[in-house]
Design a protein around this nucleic acid. Structure first.
Lengths: 228, 228, 228, 228
DNA sequence: CATGAATGAGACTTCATTCAT
DNA sequence: CATGAATGAAGTCTCATTCAT
């Protein structure tokens, strides 16, 4: 017949909505980070979240929406990590230093978050290629503005200003690549990584070779920021 | 060539096979580049290659093998493009410059190849994450060696030598990022892009701001290499 | 029957229960009418009833039971609407007229009820196909009896009596179809619709009762067409 | 791993596309007829067609497209069955008779086809409600034109002409209902059924055309009942 | 008692892969 | 050899139903 007799007792804890939502987002971030968007399956997300699939859909919606939620949360986290330590009233150089340090600190502490934001496909077919790309562009624009400000403060000729944009792009790429490199050299500290990036970008290889190095601007008693 | 003998108990030529394989690889590279590994379908590959699916399997094997073949071919192409212009007897700085220029030239001319090699998934779950990552590491190692050589030529203290590795990683990341940035600014030439990278990495932002710039070492009559 | 004791040993007020049940049945009728049995979701029923899903189950049972309850209630309503105005002591013709008028009046005033009873699936697989079909048959039988009575009153030969059954079926179908047609011509009144049906059927029936019959126009040697 | 090793030998006959397509349509018509659109499952269609589900999708597309194809084919069949025997040069009465007979003949021979066309849901939520309804309306319009022609041929006053439309609707409904009634009385022939319909409607119609109308029996002071 | 939270089951659809012609 | 025809195995998403609070 067609008696439609389904459903069976459940033996799971009843958690409040907010908690479950975080659980699912954590699981999803981990799975997306490890498999990539396309290869990730909702089944695995549900399994990792120790919950049934329908709940995943009930709480976070479709796969796309779930991924979007992950991206949004992780992007917010990163943005806040950096934003907290960057004071627009500081000198550009110090702002950059603090931001870079905060970035590496974040990556060190949230490997999966960084994976989801960065290592995901950027191929055109990807549902969020545009979204991710735009987030990245905003970051580049911010850094570009910082560099431009620094350049003008040092009396650079105007024609140089547009150059700050590709430089910002390069800096971001260098940072990402260093973050990857870090994965293979886990003994390094976030601070050491940040110093490397600053040294290279600010001084350049040619200058470094001459024995000069860059040092963080001496805050009060070396108060280099340490974002949570 | 096209004179292929369709039909009968004839002995078949070997050349057609090579041609077919190239056809398929071209199609696969295009599809993988546009869709990404997981979203790409063998159906689309076969369609773009204007061939039936069983032939794709007959010639290049499974999806994984096909993708591997794409990667291999494109990596080889890029490697050769760069390798052709880099003469180990030249000064490291010039080697680097030529290599960087060759890289951007290649990217400009083979968008799809670059996409497959770079923009594809780097997530851990990806069947080729390791393979791609290793290729990248090799490049970084090469550049690292170059930098190390340059550093030693300039009498750098030994303790600096290990630093050349992360610097190489940063350089590669900066290059990749600039290549992405280039997509949004297609009016730029490969040479301009290469110059940007060299300027930044070699001189550093701080130095650039002071008005100094880096110039390609004057080869014989400005023979800046132009990889095919 | 319906007096089933669901739930716990507690004594609960009876009135709220009745009210709730009506609420739910109203909602269910609306939803089933709009979506059809299969496409209707218990979620929507609960939402429209402004009540939680478990309550729907507590009060009316499973989806099938709920639908059955809807059908039963609406069928009763229609039956009562018609039954109230049809007095068995009246002449058959008047009974029919009153019944037909009551029918159209009901349909005009309870679109959803009519939808649930008529426009719902009659496919064999449907859980209630049989139930609905039987209700319909009862109506046809009633009308058939009425026609038979009328025919005999007019002195029709006995052999005609069995014909009243298919005529009743046709009358019912004509009524349903006119009800549908009415949806597209809402300016018509129930009375006008009822008049139409009576005019067509009663005059046809009346003629038949007088012993006149229609014969196919004599084609060449009774060549009534026989489509393959 | 993620070796994606699937697919196994098949042991099924290779049929030409057209044959399989018909097979599938036959199966789908049967399943849709028995279950209704919503309750029908693609699994069952595939099973009845003795084919795998992917083939169903390859040949006929999605469930909606499949259903549309069924409707289209069956509608065409019915239309052609009727169209073949109806010659516009014949007298309206004969056209009607031939059409009605062809209709019942078709229904008798293609139970499933008729089911799919008629017994399917007409609820608003149904994907093809509109389509089916429009087909029905076209039929009604055709018959209406026929009746109108017949009426004018017999010198009916103009004001009667609009009435032919609801009469056509009623005729169609009566026909459908008789077809259903036939299911329970399978001993009847198509011709007998057709005769019944003609007898009822044509005599009714014929009487109306002669200018005679039916009026409600004058109850006490026009006490036409008004059911609550 | 009423509800938010939870789930097994199945529906539609696609894809990598292979055999028979 | 080349291809049309075929399929097992997921994958995404929904729904009827029920328990614990």
């Amino acid at each position: 017949m067609e008696t439609e007799q389904r459903g069976r007792p459940a033996r799971v804890k009843r958690l409040p909505r907010a908690v479950r939502e975080r659980q699912i987002l954590d699981a999803a971030t981990a799975v997306f980070s490890q498999r990539g968007y396309h290869a990730a399956s909702m089944d695995e997300v549900a399994e990792v979240a120790a919950i049934s699939k329908p709940m995943v859909y009930a709480y976070l919606g479709s796969k796309e929406e779930l991924f979007a939620a992950c991206i949004k949360r992780e992007a917010t986290r990163l943005t806040e990590s950096v934003g907290t330590v960057v004071d627009p009233n500081l000198a550009p150089e110090e702002q950059l230093w603090r931001g870079v340090l905060a970035f590496f600190t974040f990556v060190g502490e949230h490997r999966d978050s960084w994976n989801v934001l960065h290592r995901q496909v950027t191929s055109e077919g990807h549902p969020f290629a545009q979204q991710i790309a735009e987030g990245r562009k905003r970051v580049i624009a911010l850094i570009g503005a910082l560099l431009s400000q620094a350049a003008q403060a040092q009396g650079m000729p105007d024609y140089f200003v547009p150059e700050t944009k590709p430089i910002a792009a390069a800096l971001v790429g260098a940072g990402e690549s260093l973050a990857d490199w870090w994965l293979d050299h886990p003994d390094e500290t976030a601070k050491a990584m940040a110093l490397r990036l600053m040294n290279l970008v600010w001084l350049g290889f040619g200058t470094l070779v001459q024995g000069r190095t860059w040092h963080p601007p001496a805050g009060p008693a070396d108060a280099t920021p340490t974002p949570a």
